[in-house]
């Protein structure tokens, strides 16, 4: 069985209010070095009966179709054997 780790993040041009809140919280804990926090989604997939050379195209399709909305989000993923 193959696994895929998918990371979906808000595009840089989009305000991430959750990230801002967490940045402020870290700063209030005394971590003044924090410049920016961006929060995204981490999605783990398990793929049955998919050949290694097909997995990349399949996962890309899942991301484009459902897992990410490319108007506001970027995605990247890694296939794990």
């Amino acid at each position: 069985m193959l696994k895929a780790n998918v990371y979906v993040t808000l595009r840089k041009s989009i305000l991430d209010p959750q990230g801002v809140a967490v940045k402020n919280a870290l700063k209030s804990l005394g971590h003044s070095e924090i410049q920016s926090v961006r929060i995204g989604k981490f999605i783990e997939l398990e793929l049955d009966e998919v050949a290694e050379n097909e997995a990349e195209a399949k996962v890309k399709e899942y991301c484009q179709k459902l897992l990410a909305n490319e108007v506001m989000e970027d995605f990247k993923f890694e296939i794990i054997k």
Binding site: L10, I14, L15, D16, P17, Q18, V20, A21, N69, V71, M72
Partner: peptide, 16 residues
Amino acid sequence: TEAGLLPGVLTRNANR
């Protein structure tokens, strides 16, 4: 918007 019938997207309110 998700269905592509309208442009753009609705994202998190700026004040969270």
